[in-house]
Design a protein around this nucleic acid. Sequence first.
DNA 1: GTGAAAGCGCTAACAT
DNA 2: ATGTTAGCGCTTTCAC
Lengths: 362, 362
Amino acid sequence: MRSRRPRESRRPARCRPSGSPTRPGRTTCWFRHRLRERILTESARQGFHGPDAAARSLRRGRSAAIGVLYTDRLSYAFADPGAVRFLQGVSTACESTGNELVLIPRTSDASAGGTAVGRSIVDGLVVYSVADDDPVLAEAVERRLPVVVVDQPHAADLHWVGTDDEGGSSAICEHVVSLGHRRLAVIATELTRRRRGGLASLARQKAATFATTAARLRGYRDGAAAAGIPWSTVPVYEAVENSEEQGRAAAEALLDTDPRPTALLAMTDQLAFGACQAVRNRGLDVPRDVSVTGFDDLPAAARYEPPLTTVHQPHGTKGRVAADLLLDLLAGRTPEPRTHTFPATTRLRGSTAPPPTRRRRS
Amino acid sequence: MRSRRPRESRRPARCRPSGSPTRPGRTTCWFRHRLRERILTESARQGFHGPDAAARSLRRGRSAAIGVLYTDRLSYAFADPGAVRFLQGVSTACESTGNELVLIPRTSDASAGGTAVGRSIVDGLVVYSVADDDPVLAEAVERRLPVVVVDQPHAADLHWVGTDDEGGSSAICEHVVSLGHRRLAVIATELTRRRRGGLASLARQKAATFATTAARLRGYRDGAAAAGIPWSTVPVYEAVENSEEQGRAAAEALLDTDPRPTALLAMTDQLAFGACQAVRNRGLDVPRDVSVTGFDDLPAAARYEPPLTTVHQPHGTKGRVAADLLLDLLAGRTPEPRTHTFPATTRLRGSTAPPPTRRRRS
DNA sequence: GTGAAAGCGCTAACAT
DNA sequence: ATGTTAGCGCTTTCAC
């Protein structure tokens, strides 16, 4: 055996100071011998900082925190009302168990010390609405922590929470065509991680890696097909972010197509609000000249003028259920079912009406 | 010296496996001897989970995360538009440096393993809008981590970011009285941690421990005093949360006081929105019969019908500046100035007008 | 260059 | 009951 001095020769005798721990009048926190030494030698004015959280986590193997990964830049989540309500649901679950909620930024890959998802101190991860091919998802599963995926991607072996996007969008499209609309146009959310605004070809639509966008596209397509409208006649404008501004830009481009669409199907309420503004900016009326539909049913949708016909999905509940699922996993339970698909229900309101002139197809 | 065996006799030889670390074809991640042993012995199917985040943090003494503490239940923060914008600002700063953002829930004090603020793994804390006597603040400073306080309390020795609440509220009150209003009423945010809804006596107003509430109250009082209105004639209704619902309840109570107020000064836009609804529910008009003012200047304020006269404060900027301050502190810099007070500027819009009948004081 | 080991501060397990 | 110690997995420092 190599001769090396026992550990004690360098390490101070023990972490617990000699005072009896349970004796009345002494604190029961008897940790940190070395720090106390420093306190006594260097300066007596320092107090006890409380137990070190990282050491505690290392030892216990738990941090009592769950992480949330968002598709986009973290700050965009706070600009997206659906994401905010989702996070509210997550935080509701967290506070009931006292877990911290860690919002993990997307780090530029060259960042030192690994990416934020790799070094975040969490017991589990909620992956919210990322593209199928997003490397951040791979990083998340590589950590071998419990993972709950929300909305997308629909990975088979991961716990999953989401909405019946396809059903919701086919239903609302069916409603629109049942009113008599034949010239439809779609305002879509991002199709791929590398965004490209503007009209999206059928090929690009096929190549979509955002699962919810693809699902809603399929729903619209099926709804249109039910009325005999070939999908190739439906222009699809891809927005680069979920904002009213982008909805406006999309609607402006789509209203320029010939023949002009009589119905605009937007994949989010925010995009729909922007579309309504663009329609009005042309001197047209919603819904008299152009019908507009949304998706999400934000609280603002019902108060909008005109009240927005949209598809309801329970953002807050999704967040709560996703977090509960994760917390169950962390507690060692094996929650069933592994997937929760919430229904997407159409809310028929004032932004849809029959098309202005009911002209039979040529 | 006590005879004890050297540490090596129990600890596996080294943490780095024998393979040459830099030889091409081998991963450069050569950590975790013990785990690798387990991998080889127990099951070969496990992979390398990535470096352990807690161990890394313990060793480095940094977690690359900053924590945010909120007055209230965490989930309420997501229901408060001002708080959401604040968090957006914080997250903007975080993502620029790749720091995680930890939202710390308020744990019921009896929670096992200490409170969440004590055990959260963060390098610094942003304390957002808590009462002067909130124990969570004491816990935060006891951790001896860098702390930035936002809005309240105005603790002298801590870095601080906030708004000129007193100036903003006195200015908007002066505007209202300059229109001729003499019967004012205030819809206040919480006065103390133990909430009590309803009309607040002068004694209770004096006892306020929420610094921003107290500051706005002082501002209103000074604005009223400038017009010779004694503060004792101004009823103050304390809302128990920042919601339209509470604004409605407050306005209903205040409109029942005799003589009926002609102007309602609300301490947040949300409360003001609710107040407007209550006024209309009585068959009265804003601003013809009753003027209403807010505070915050949410994006919705300008779009409201009528557009809300309110006080602007830069929620998002406050969040960004607070986080930048904290990140500076963490980087070892000593940011100057230690306090940032943003101006609160009045936005005169359509919800204020002269009182209905200009009757000289009896 | 390559390799070894000390130890961050805590807690669970074991020793008395 | 009270006291002791090993070691979580990493990184930094030191030794070769």
